[in-house]
Write a protein that binds this DNA or RNA. Structure first.
Length: 900
DNA sequence: TATCCGACATAAA
DNA sequence: TTTATGTCGGATA
C-alpha cells in the first residue's frame, strides 16, 4: 500500500457509504482494509474472534489497533472521552479511538494525543491521520515533533557539546576515538530506553547521573563505574557498592562488556545529559526510524536529513513481503484449522536466518524482526482460538524468534553499533506488545545473545562463513539496500572490491551494487536461501545488463519477483530522488510463477528478464557491427571545449560584429535540445582549416588559446595539441544523415528523429547514421523499434538513453523486398511532410503524448501497422500488443545472432 | 518541483 | 589511437 492507494481507497469508501453503495455496518472493516491491514485479520475481527467489545454489532475493540463505536447518541465528544478513560484502552495499547454517527467522525491517536473532528464526508481529506496503521508515523512525515525527531535533536546537541569538550580535529580523525564515542552513545541510548521501558526502574539512570557534581567533574567516572556494574552479575559486584548503583540489574549480552573511554563532561553537557533522560519518553521511539536519525547525529553532514525517512517502512515492506512475508501469511491461511500445522509453522520461524549484508543502522533487520514477531503473534493467536474452541483452555504461548537469527554486515562503525542496539530495543518493544496480546512476557534481562552484526566490508567477507546454515534446510533470507556507485562515482576502495568479487574480469562498467547481487547469487546457489535487494535501476538497463546478469544466472538462479523502476526518496541528499528497482532472486524453479510489480499493479508472469519485463530471455550484448544489413551509426561530434566554441544566436552575432572574417567558420550545431525544441545554436567549425591562418584573427586566436588552457587541465590525452578542433569529429562528408537524440523523454511514443545535410554539425548528444535511406528512417520511427528501445536501452532516471552498440547494432530487421523498401520510403516521406506542414511547432510539441497532432499520429500508426506486417509475414493476424512485438523481436534477434 | 536533456571523464577496442 | 557510454544528475521552465 502506498499513500496514493490508501487515499484513493478511503475516498471510494466514504463516497460509497454516503451514496449507500456500501453499508454502514461494513464501514469500519473496509476502513481498516484501506490501510493495508491483512484481510484474514480483519475477517477474524469481523466474525468476533478478535473483537473484544461487548456490543459487537456496533463497536469494535481490537487490541493494539482500534476501539470503534457507532454512536447512537448526539454527544460524540462525550462518548469518545468515555472510551478514552476506560482502563482497557490503555492496557491493550489501543492506538486509535474512533466514533462516528456517519455525519461526523471523531478520532483520537492515543500515541500522539492528536484528535480528529471532521464531517464524515470530509474523512478522505484527513486520511493521513490514520497512516500509522500503514507503518507511516504521521509525526515524522509531517515534520512535526515526534519522539524520534525530538530525541535525535537532543542527542545531536549533546553530541556536539561532548565533541567540543573532549576532542580536537586530530582526535576526531582517529578511528579508535570515534569508535569509543560511538559505543558510548549507543550505551547511553540503551540506558535511556531501559529506564523508560521497565528494563531498569523508572528513570533510574537519570536519577543516578543526577547524583554527580553539578559542574560535571565526576560524571565521567560515575558513568564509567555504572557501565562496569551493568556488566556484572550480583555476585561479581563489589560488596560496598552504593545503593543507587547496586540497584541496577545485570545487563549482559555484550553491550557493556568492554571498558571504554567515557568522555568528560562540563556543567552544560551534564545538564543536557540529564534533560535527555528527564524530558523525553524513550519508550516511544521507533528503532527503525530512529536508527537512521541517530546515525545522522554522528555524521554531521547528514544532519539536515533528519526526519526524512518516512518512506523507509513501506519501501522495506516492498522487499520483505514478496520475499517471505506474503508466503507466510498464505501458509497461515492454509493451515488455519490445524494446531499441529500451525505449531510447525511457528517452529519454522525459529529456524530462519535473516541476513542484510549492507545493513546500515539496521532498518531492514528491524522491520523484518518486527514483522516476523507480528506474524508469529498471529499464528499464536490462531492456535489459542483453536485450543479454546476444543478444550476451553489454552497453553502458554511463547516466542521462538531470537534476535540472534538476524545477521548484518555494515562498513560504518557507528551505524553497526546502532544496528546492534536497535535490535535489542525492538526485541524489547515486541516483547511488550506480546504481553499486551498474551499477558506473558519474556524477561528483558539479562540480555540474551545479540544479533550478529559485524563492522566489515561486505564485499570482502565470506558470507557463507559469516551466516552459516545450521543445516541444509536452514532458510536464509537476504535483504537490504546495498550501496550504489556507478563506474565513475566509485572510490578506489570500491573499485578494488568489485575487482575482487568479479575476479578481475569485466568489472569496470558495473555498478558497485553488482557485487552484492553476485555474492548473493553465489550464496543462494550453495544454500537454501533467497534474496531481495533494492538497487539502482541501472543494473537492469543498457550495457550493464549483458555484463552482469549472465554471470548471475550462471550460478543457477533466476529473478523470482521484481519491482520495476520507481522513485525512492534518497536519504543521503535532501531533495534528490533516485530511481530504483527491487529484485528478488531464487534458485531456478520453473514451476513457480513470477511476480512483476509496477507502481500500480502486480502481474503474474512466466519469466522475468534482467530488464524487469516479462519476456523470454533477451540479453543483448554490446555489438560493434550491425546485426542487420543497415548502414553504420556513429557518434555525434563532441566539443569538450568548455563551451568556448559554442554560440547561441546573440553570441554569434556579436562575435561576428567584432570579428567579421570569422563569419565563414560558423556552422549550425544540432544537439538534442536544439533539435527537439527547435532552437538554434552555432559552433566554430575548424575541421578543414589551417591553424596558422586562424591565428591571424585576433579574437579567434584568443578563443583557441582559452580552449587550449581548458584542455591542458583535462585528463584526456592529446587534446591540448588540437585546441581548435572538436575533441571527437565524426561529421560525414558529402552525405545526408539521420539524427537521433541520445536522450529523450519517456513521455513520447516515438523518439523524434530527423534528416540533416552535412552542413549541420551533429552534437555528441545525438547519434547519426550517414547515408541512411528513408526506408531505414521509417523502420526506426516504427513502434516496433520503440518497443526494442524500451526493452534494451539504458535509462536516465526513466527516460530513454539510445545507444549504438546496444540498441541500434542489435536491432533485428528482416530482409526487405524492393516493394517493401518503396512502401517504407513513402510512409517516411508522409511523416516528414506532415511535420513540414506543421513547422511552426517544434518536435517536442509534435511528439508529446498530449499534444501530438492527429494527422501526424495517424501517419505513425499507418507506418506501425506496415512495419508490423513486415515482421509477421506468415500470419495475417494483426499484432496487438507490445509484448507480442517484443517476443517477435527476441525470436528474430536470437535467430539472426546465431546465424550471423 | 517536474520535466527533460548536457558535458566530459573514462571505459573498451 | 579512436569512439561510445553513463552519471544515488543538473539546468530550466
Amino acid at each position: 500500500m502506498n499513500i496514493v492507494q490508501i487515499e484513493d481507497s478511503v475516498k471510494h469508501l466514504v463516497k460509497n457509504v454516503l451514496d449507500g453503495t456500501a453499508s454502514q455496518k461494513d464501514f469500519i472493516y473496509d476502513f481498516l482494509l484501506s490501510y493495508g491491514h491483512r484481510s484474514q485479520s480483519i475477517g477474524r475481527v469481523r466474525n468476533g474472534e478478535r473483537n473484544l467489545a461487548e456490543d459487537k454489532e456496533n463497536s469494535v475493540f481490537w487490541k493494539r489497533q482500534i476501539y470503534f463505536k457507532f454512536a447512537k447518541q448526539d454527544d460524540l465528544h462525550g462518548l469518545i472521552d468515555q472510551m478514552k478513560n476506560e482502563k482497557r484502552t490503555e492496557s491493550n495499547k489501543i492506538r486509535f479511538l474512533i466514533v462516528t454517527d456517519f455525519k461526523n467522525l471523531l478520532a483520537v491517536d492515543t500515541k500522539t494525543q492528536d484528535t480528529l473532528d471532521v464531517s464524515f464526508s470530509d474523512l478522505a481529506k484527513k486520511f493521513d491521520f490514520f497512516l500509522p496503521w500503514a507503518g507511516m508515523e504521521k509525526a515524522v512525515y509531517q515534520g512535526e515533533n515526534p519522539a524520534d525527531v525530538k530525541a535525535a535533536e537532543k542527542l545531536a546537541k549533546l553530541f556536539d557539546e561532548i565533541k567540543a569538550d573532549n576532542f580536537d580535529e586530530d582526535d576526531l580523525n582517529n578511528k579508535e576515538n570515534l569508535h569509543q564515542l560511538n559505543i558510548f552513545l549507543s550505551r547511553l541510548l540503551f540506558c535511556y530506553f531501559a529506564e523508560d521501558t521497565e528494563i531498569f526502574k523508572n528513570k533510574q539512570f537519570t536519577s543516578a547521573i543526577s547524583k554527580s557534581n553539578e559542574d560535571g567533574s565526576d560524571l565521567s567516572a560515575l558513568i564509567c563505574r555504572l557501565f562496569k556494574v551493568l556488566n556484572q552479575s550480583s555476585e561479581d559486584r563489589e560488596a560496598d557498592l552504593p545503593d543507587y548503583l547496586a540497584d541496577f540489574p545485570y545487563v549482559n549480552g555484550g553491550l557493556f562488556k568492554d571498558d571504554i573511554q567515557v568522555p568528560k563532561f562540563t556543567r552544560k553537557s551534564r545538564r543536557i545529559l540529564i534533560e535527555c533522560g528527564a524530558e523525553l519518553d524513550w519508550s516511544d521511539i521507533n528503532p527503525d526510524i530512529f536508527g537512521s536519525m541517530f546515525q545522522a547525529v554522528v555524521h554531521t553532514e547528514q544532519r539536515s536529513t533528519m526526519g526524512q525517512h518516512y518512506t523507509s517502512v513501506p519501501n522495506i515492506m516492498k522487499v520483505i513481503e514478496p520475499l517471505f512475508l506474503n508466503d507466510l501469511y498464505e501458509e497461515l491461511e492454509k493451515n488455519q484449522d490445524s494446531v499441529n500445522k500451525l505449531l510447525k509453522l511457528q517452529q519454522r520461524l525459529g529456524q530462519l536466518k535473516i541476513f542484510d549484508p549492507a545493513c546500515g543502522s539496521g532498518n531492514f533487520l528491524i522491520i523484518a524482526y518486527k514483522e516476523l514477531r507480528k506474524f508469529e503473534m498471529e499464528v499464536l493467536k490462531r492456535i489459542q482460538e483453536l485450543e479454546l474452541e476444543k478444550t476451553g483452555q489454552f497453553s502458554k504461548p511463547f516466542s521462538l524468534i531470537q534476535v540472534s537469527q538476524f545477521y548484518g554486515i555494515e562498513i560504518d562503525d557507528f551505524a553497526h553499533e546502532v544496528a546492534i542496539l536497535s535490535l535489542w530495543l525492538v526485541e524489547h518493544q515486541m516483547n511488550l506488545a506480546f504481553r499486551v496480546e498474551f499477558g506473558e512476557i519474556v524477561p528483558a534481562l539479562p540480555l540474551k545473545i545479540s544479533g550478529n552484526v559485524i563492522c566489515n566490508n561486505a564485499t570482502q567477507v565470506d558470507w557463507l562463513k559469516f551466516c552459516e546454515p545450521d543445516s541444509p534446510d536452514t532458510q536464509i533470507l537476504i535483504i537490504g539496500n546495498p550501496p550504489f556507485a556507478g563506474s565513475r562515482k566509485r572510490n578506489s576502495q570500491q573499485s578494488e572490491d568489485l575487482k575482487l568479487v568479479f575476479n578481475n574480469k569485466n568489472y569496470k562498467l558495473l555498478d558497485y551494487v553488482s557485487a552484492w547481487f553476485y555474492k548473493g547469487a553465489s550464496f543462494i546457489s550453495k544454500t537454501n536461501a533467497k534474496l531481495g535487494f533494492v538497487s539502482t535501476n541501472s543494473v537492469t538497463q543498457g550495457e550493464q545488463v549483458s555484463l552482469l546478469w549472465p554471470r548471475i544466472f550462471n550460478t543457477g538462479v533466476e529473478i523470482s519477483w521484481a519491482h520495476q523502476s520507481f522513485k525512492w526518496k534518497n536519504n543521503a541528499k535532501h531533495n534528490a530522488a533516485v530511481t530504483v528497482v527491487i529484485i528478488g532472486i531464487e534458485k531456478i524453479n520453473e514451476n513457480k510463477s513470477k511476480i512483476l510489480y509496477s507502481e500500480s499493479l502486480e502481474t503474474i508472469v512466466g519469466t522475468i528478464n534482467p530488464n524487469l519485463t516479462e519476456s523470454s530471455e533477451l540479453i543483448v550484448s554490446s555489438r560493434k557491427k550491425t546485426l542487420s544489413n543497415i548502414p553504420d551509426m556513429c557518434f555525434g561530434n563532441m566539443p569538450a571545449d568548455g563551451g568556448k566554441l559554442l554560440f547561441n544566436e546573440e553570441e554569434k552575432t556579436s562575435f561576428i560584429q567584432k570579428e567579421p572574417l570569422s563569419k565563414r567558420y560558423f556552422k549550425e550545431l544540432i544537439s538534442a535540445r536544439e533539435f527537439i525544441n527547435g532552437k538554434k545554436r552555432y559552433c566554430l567549425w575548424f575541421a578543414d582549416e589551417d591553424l596558422d591562418d586562424l591565428y591571424k584573427l585576433k579574437l579567434i586566436r584568443q578563443l583557441i588559446e582559452e580552449v587550449k588552457i581548458i584542455r591542458q587541465n583535462s585528463s584526456r590525452p592529446n587534446l591540448a595539441s588540437i585546441p581548435h578542433l572538436f575533441a571527437q569529429i565524426t561529421q560525414p562528408k558529402g552525405k545526408n544523415y539521420i539524427l537521433i537524440p541520445r536522450h529523450s523523454s519517456e513521455n513520447r511514443d516515438y523518439i523524434p528523429m530527423g534528416f540533416f545535410s552535412e552542413d549541420y554539425i551533429a552534437h555528441d548528444s545525438c547519434l547519426i547514421i550517414p547515408d541512411a535511406s528513408p526506408a531505414l528512417f521509417a523502420i526506426l520511427n516504427s513502434r516496433m523499434h520503440m518497443v526494442w528501445v524500451r526493452a534494451v536501452a539504458g535509462r536516465i532516471k526513466t527516460d530513454f538513453r539510445y545507444s549504438k552498440d546496444t540498441v541500434y547494432n542489435n536491432f533485428p530487421i528482416p530482409t526487405l523486398t524492393k516493394s517493401e523498401l518503396e512502401e517504407l520510403s513513402n510512409l517516411a516521406f508522409e511523416i516528414l511532410s506532415i511535420r513540414e506542414n506543421d513547422s511552426s511547432k517544434c518536435l517536442a510539441d509534435l511528439y508529446s503524448k498530449a499534444t501530438m497532432p492527429n494527422d501526424l499520429r495517424n501517419a505513425h500508426i499507418k507506418l506501425d501497422k506496415y512495419v508490423d506486417s513486415i515482421y509477421q509475414k506468415k500470419s495475417q493476424k494483426q499484432i496487438k500488443s507490445d509484448e507480442c512485438r517484443l517476443s517477435i523481436l527476441s525470436f528474430l534477434y536470437n535467430k539472426m545472432s546465431i546465424e550471423g
